[in-house]
Design a protein around this nucleic acid. Structure first.
Lengths: 329, 329
DNA sequence: CTGTTAGCGCGTTCAA
DNA sequence: TTGAACGCGCTAACAG
C-alpha cells in the first residue's frame, strides 16, 4: 500500500502538502494541488484510517447504542440514521445492549476510550451525571428518551399520542373503549406505554366516558400475550367496541384474537395501534404514526451539526404525531 | 487520559511489559502482572483503540455491506450478525449500498484502506476477480449470493424452496396454482424469485399439473403491485385456488386483495409466502422459513473463525428450508 | 504557499 | 522475564 510519503515523493512535494490537499486546506497553489492529485491517482493511494485517527484524535465514527433489536421500531429508527450518515464522512457502528448496567458500562468505555466521535442512544435511559463528569461535552443525542436530559433529543408526546388515538376512536362513534399495553419494561424501564395510557384516560374523561378496568390489560410485551388478553376482554358479555393497543405489535395480537373469535374488523371491533411500523402497512392497521424513520434522520442530522459546528443545540425536537387511517377503525 | 506510559511508570515497569499483560502474553511473571493490573485499575486506564489499530494493523472491526434496508429480510440477517459479533471483540460497522457500481467502489475502498478486518456481504453480487487481484486473501463472507464464489458463503436452495412451497399446496388438495413474484431486481439483479419460480414449475410438472400464464404475475417489488396483481388473477372466472408468493411482503399484498374481494383465507384462496420475516408471524402467514436470523449468525461465526484461525473454510453452508404452518393454507 | 519536524499511543523486535 | 527503542502513517505546528 502506498503511503503519504510515496505520494509526496512522486508529486515532488512534502508530505504536509499532500496532507493539505487530502484535507481540503485551501492554502495550496492550484498547480501543486493538481500534481498531488495526479500522484494520488497514479498510485491509487488512499489514506490509512487508523493513522488519521491516531494523529487527529478523531474516529470518524458515530456509534448507535440501542436495545438489542427486540422491537421493530428500533430498526426503523436505525434506517433513518443510516440514511443520513451514509452521505457523511462518518461510519456507523452498532452497539446493542441487553441491560442497563451493560449500557452504562458500554457508554463509559465508548466515551472513555474515544472509540467514537459521537453517540446516538435509542430509547435507553442512562445516568447522565455519571457521563458528564467523565467527559462533560461528549456528543450524545438521544431518541425516545426522557426529555429532561441536557443532551439534544428527539422525542414525541406519548400522552398526547394516547389521547389522539382515543379521540379518533370516539369520533368514530365508539363509546366503550378498551386498552392493551405492556408493562413498564423490567429491564430498560421503557415507560411510553404508561404515558399513552395516561392519554387514553385523559381523553376518556374529557369525553365523559368511563374507564373500565375489565376492558384494559397490561402485561408481557408479546403478540401472543396481547392475543390472549384480547380474548379475555372481548369474551365479556359487555365488551368494548374498540381497542387501543399501545404498540402496533400488540395490536397484531388483538387483531388475531378478533378474527379467531369470528368477529369483523372494524364493524364488530375497531382496533388502533401506535408506532406505525412497516408491518402495520402490511396488515392495514390504523395507527398513530410517530415518524420512526424520521426520528433517526433527525437524530443523525443533529449529531452531524454538532460535530461539524462544535455547537450544541439542546432544545429537544418533538416530532408530530398523526393518525394513519387504514382499515381497522 | 492515561497512556500506556503512565501505567508503566506507576507499575515501575517498561511499557512493553504493560503491553504484554494487556495482550495476554504469558511471558510475564505473576507478581509483575499483578502490579501492572493494579496500576491499570488505579489509573482507570484503557488502551487507545486508534493507536492499537495503527501499530497492530488490525481494525477490530467487521463491516456489513447490505443493500439499503429495502427488504425486511436484511434486517433479520443483520440481527443474527449483531448477535454473534456482540459477544466478540469486533465492532460491527454498517455500510449500505444503493447501486452495484457503488458496491464495487465501496468494497475497493474498505479493503484498500484496511478499514475493516473482514466484510460480510448480504445479497449483493460483486466482481470477485477485481477484489481478489486487489487483495487475494481478504476475508469476505457472503450471504444469499451466488454460490459460485470462492469466498465462504451462506446460501439456500431457492429452487428447492419453490418446489417445497408448491408441493405443500398440492398436498393440501390444490390443483390450480398461481404465482406472484417480483422481476429480477433492476439495480442489484437479485434472482431468487426466478429460481423460486423454477421450483414452482418443477413441482407442477412433477405432479402433472398445468402451469398457466394467466394465473401468474411478475412485476414491481411492492405490496401494492402484488395486491393489484392478485386482484387481476383472482377476478378471472377460472381462478387458482392457491397462490404462491415468492416473498412474504408480496404475500401480504395478495392477502389484502383476497380479503378485499370478500373471499376467505384459506377456504376460498390459500396463500403461501417465502422468507418468514417477523411480520409473517403477525399476520399468521403460512410460509417457507429460510432461517434469516440464523443465516446472519452463521455468516458472522464463519467470519470470526476465519479471522481467529487464519484458515479459510470455503465450503458453502446451505441452510435447510422448512414450511412454517400457520393460518393461510 | 510549502517543507521539516515532532508527536499521536501502542506493538514488537532486540538486547540484556 | 523484562526494558529501550523504533516505527506504524498521518496531522499540525512551526519555520521558511
Amino acid at each position: 500500500m502506498p503511503t503519504i510519503r510515496d505520494v509526496a515523493k512522486r508529486a515532488g512535494v512534502g508530505i504536509a502538502t499532500v496532507s493539505r490537499v487530502l484535507n481540503g486546506s485551501s492554502q495550496v497553489r492550484e498547480s501543486t494541488r493538481q500534481r498531488v492529485l495526479d500522484a494520488i491517482a497514479d498510485l491509487n493511494y488512499s489514506p490509512n484510517q487508523a493513522a488519521r485517527r491516531l494523529s487527529s484524535g478523531k474516529t470518524f465514527t458515530i456509534g448507535v447504542v440501542s436495545p438489542f433489536f427486540t422491537f421493530p421500531s428500533f430498526v426503523e429508527r436505525l434506517t433513518g440514521i443510516q440514511d443520513v450518515l451514509d452521505e457523511s464522512e462518518y461510519d456507523l457502528v452498532l452497539y446493542s445492549i441487553r441491560s442497563t448496567e451493560q449500557l452504562q458500562r458500554r457508554l463509559r468505555i465508548l466515551i472513555g476510550e474515544n472509540r467514537v466521535d459521537g453517540l446516538i442512544v435509542l430509547s435507553l435511559p442512562f445516568s447522565e451525571r455519571d457521563l458528564r463528569t467523565l467527559k462533560p461535552d461528549f456528543p450524545i443525542v438521544t431518541v425516545d428518551n426522557s426529555p429532561a436530559w441536557h443532551y439534544p433529543s428527539v422525542v414525541i408526546d406519548d400522552v398526547a399520542g394516547g389521547a389522539l388515538a382515543t379521540r379518533y376512536l370516539i369520533e368514530h362513534g365508539h363509546r366503550a373503549l378498551g386498552f392493551v399495553g405492556d408493562r413498564t419494561d423490567s429491564v430498560f424501564r421503557f415507560t411510553s406505554t404508561e404515558r399513552r395510557l395516561e392519554g387514553f384516560r385523559n381523553a376518556l374523561t374529557e369525553a365523559g366516558l368511563e374507564f373500565r378496568e375489565t376492558w384494559c390489560w397490561q402485561g408481557e410485551h408479546s403478540q401472543e400475550a396481547a392475543r390472549q388478553a384480547a380474548w379475555r376482554i372481548l369474551q365479556q358479555p359487555n365488551r368494548p367496541s374498540a381497542i387501543f393497543a399501545a404498540m402496533d405489535t400488540l395490536a397484531f395480537g388483538v387483531l388475531q384474537a378478533v378474527r379467531e373469535m369470528g368477529m369483523r374488523v372494524p364493524e364488530d371491533v375497531a382496533v388502533i395501534g401506535f408506532d406505525d411500523i412497516a408491518a402495520a402497512g402490511y396488515v392495514n392497521l390504523t395507527t398513530v404514526s410517530q415518524h420512526l424513520v424520521e426520528s433517526g434522520r433527525i437524530a443523525a442530522q443533529r449529531m452531524l451539526d454538532w460535530l461539524r459546528s462544535g455547537e450544541i443545540e439542546r432544545t429537544p425536537v418533538q416530532l408530530p404525531l398523526k393518525i394513519v387511517e387504514r382499515a381497522t377503525v
